[in-house]
Amino acid sequence: MDELAAGITTGELTLADVPVYEPPRRCPICQRRMTVQVRPDGWRARCSRHSVLLDK
């Protein structure tokens, strides 16, 4: 079990303490909307024009 899950399970942390990881929705170059895939372990975003691939 990772530290975050252990902290929530033991009561040391609450869901309000968990940082929010919001994937980018716009390309940093052209500001077009990106295709975003959200996965349980992170996200992947891709611009259709620039093929910019951001991965977390």
Score class of each variant (00 low, 15 high):
residue 28 P to H: 03
residue 30 C to T: 00
residue 31 Q to R: 13
residue 48 S to H: 14
residue 51 S to P: 15
residue 15 L to H: 11
residue 36 V to C: 00
residue 28 P to M: 05
residue 19 P to H: 02
residue 34 M to T: 00
residue 19 P to W: 04
residue 52 V to M: 05
residue 27 C to N: 01
residue 50 H to N: 15
residue 1 M to E: 15
residue 23 P to M: 01
residue 22 E to P: 06
residue 37 Q to I: 04
residue 36 V to L: 05
residue 20 V to Y: 08
residue 33 R to C: 10
residue 17 D to C: 10
residue 31 Q to I: 09
residue 24 P to R: 11
residue 3 E to S: 01
residue 43 W to K: 01
residue 55 D to W: 10
residue 30 C to W: 05
residue 11 G to I: 03
residue 20 V to G: 10
residue 47 C to F: 12
residue 41 D to L: 08
residue 37 Q to A: 12
residue 49 R to Y: 12
residue 25 R to E: 05
residue 55 D to P: 01
residue 16 A to G: 15
residue 52 V to Y: 01
residue 6 A to I: 09
residue 10 T to L: 05
residue 24 P to V: 00
residue 31 Q to C: 06
residue 14 T to E: 06
residue 56 K to F: 05
residue 15 L to G: 11
residue 18 V to H: 08
residue 21 Y to C: 15
residue 43 W to L: 02
residue 7 G to D: 01
residue 50 H to M: 09
residue 44 R to M: 14
residue 40 P to N: 10
residue 11 G to F: 03
residue 24 P to E: 05
residue 2 D to K: 15
residue 13 L to S: 06
residue 11 G to S: 03
residue 18 V to W: 11
residue 52 V to W: 03
residue 31 Q to K: 09
residue 23 P to C: 01
residue 15 L to A: 13
residue 25 R to K: 14
residue 13 L to T: 02
residue 27 C to W: 11
residue 53 L to F: 02
residue 6 A to S: 11
residue 12 E to Q: 10
residue 45 A to C: 13
residue 38 V to L: 14
residue 26 R to W: 07
residue 36 V to E: 03
residue 12 E to N: 07
residue 16 A to E: 12
residue 26 R to T: 15
residue 16 A to K: 04
residue 14 T to P: 00
residue 30 C to E: 09
residue 29 I to D: 14
residue 26 R to I: 14
residue 37 Q to E: 10
residue 24 P to L: 11
residue 8 I to F: 00
residue 26 R to C: 12
residue 38 V to F: 05
residue 29 I to P: 12
residue 2 D to R: 14
residue 14 T to V: 14
residue 7 G to V: 02
residue 1 M to W: 12
residue 28 P to V: 05
residue 2 D to S: 15
residue 47 C to L: 06
residue 19 P to N: 07
residue 42 G to I: 01
residue 40 P to R: 07
residue 2 D to T: 04
residue 9 T to Y: 12
residue 28 P to Q: 07
residue 42 G to W: 02
residue 40 P to I: 13
residue 52 V to Q: 04
residue 32 R to E: 09
residue 55 D to F: 10
residue 37 Q to R: 07
residue 45 A to M: 07
residue 54 L to M: 00
residue 47 C to T: 06
residue 25 R to M: 08
residue 36 V to R: 03
